[in-house]
Simulated scan of single mutants.
Amino acid sequence: MKIRSLIMFKVLAVFLFTALITGCGVNIDANRYQNIAPQFDPFMFFDGKVKAWGLVQNRSGEMVQRFTVKIDGTVKGDTLTLDEVFHYEVGQGVTHRVWKISAKGKSQLQGSAQDILGIATGQLAGNAMRWQYEMDLPVDDTSYTVQFDDWIWAFEDNTIINRSYIKKFGIVMAEVTIFMQKAP
């Protein structure tokens, strides 16, 4: 009887742990945005100057960073270069990043930046874009390898919103919200 109870306890513990882990993820279907206007074209939107305002919230919802970003984008051939300069009003973080992004087919993108591990991948679908990558995120005196799952939605031709989910072991540890507006 004791062994049977122990086995049942272990099965229940594994089930509850699995349910907890899968319940902590974000699962958005890009295809549902395929027919929503305006169509998002990152090469058109980011060609020129863009201003962004954002914040980072930890798992408790507390704001841990508030920042602005000046983005200078250029398109040469099939490569989009984003030169980003960050200024923090609350918290600290990266102050400069340069993305190199290229189209891989009609709706696929790839990119890299100096603080990104490996290759970032993107998928375009109507007014949305999913952008995924991994980076070593500095926090205090250490850094953590985390995965970013960015969702970008176009509101109009000159305004987009970016919602990022920062994950570790598949669990959302923080969320980033950024509003971006193309300069006239």
Rank of each mutant, 00 (worst) to 15 (best):
M1N: 04
K2D: 12
I3L: 13
I3F: 11
S5C: 04
L6E: 13
I7N: 08
M8T: 09
F9R: 14
V11P: 05
A13L: 15
F15N: 06
F15D: 02
A19F: 11
A19Q: 05
L20M: 11
L20A: 07
G23A: 07
G23N: 11
C24T: 12
G25C: 05
G25V: 12
G25K: 15
I28F: 10
I28M: 14
D29K: 15
N35S: 15
A37D: 13
A37G: 05
F40W: 12
P42L: 10
P42W: 05
F45Y: 12
G48N: 11
K49E: 06
K49T: 08
V50R: 00
V50N: 00
A52H: 00
V56Q: 03
V56M: 13
R59A: 07
G61R: 02
E62P: 01
M63V: 15
V64W: 02
V69H: 06
V69I: 13
V69Y: 03
K70G: 14
I71K: 02
I71D: 02
D72R: 06
G73N: 04
G73V: 01
G73Q: 06
T74K: 10
K76E: 13
G77S: 09
G77F: 00
L80W: 04
E84R: 04
V85L: 07
Y88F: 11
E89Y: 14
V90Y: 02
V94N: 15
H96C: 09
R97C: 10
R97W: 14
V98S: 04
W99G: 08
K100V: 01
S102D: 05
S102E: 06
A103S: 14
G105I: 07
Q108D: 07
Q108S: 09
G111K: 02
Q114R: 05
Q114S: 07
Q114N: 08
D115L: 10
I116M: 10
I116P: 09
L117W: 08
L117M: 12
G118T: 12
G118C: 06
I119H: 06
I119F: 08
I119R: 09
A120E: 08
A120R: 11
L124H: 10
G126L: 13
N127H: 14
R130C: 09
R130W: 10
R130E: 08
Q132K: 11
Q132T: 04
M135K: 03
D136I: 02
D136Q: 11
L137K: 11
L137H: 03
L137I: 03
P138V: 06
V139Y: 07
D141H: 14
D141K: 04
D141C: 05
T142M: 04
S143Y: 06
T145K: 10
T145S: 07
V146L: 09
F148T: 00
D149H: 02
W153D: 15
D157H: 00
D157Y: 00
D157N: 02
T159V: 00
I160D: 04
I161C: 09
I161N: 08
S164R: 03
S164D: 02
I166E: 02
I166R: 00
K167E: 09
K167N: 07
K168C: 01
F169W: 09
F169D: 12
I171Y: 05
V172A: 06
V172L: 07
M173Q: 13
M173N: 03
E175Y: 01
I178R: 00
I178H: 01
M180G: 04
M180E: 03
Q181I: 01
Q181V: 06
K182C: 06
K182P: 08
K182E: 03
K182A: 05
K182Y: 05
A183T: 09
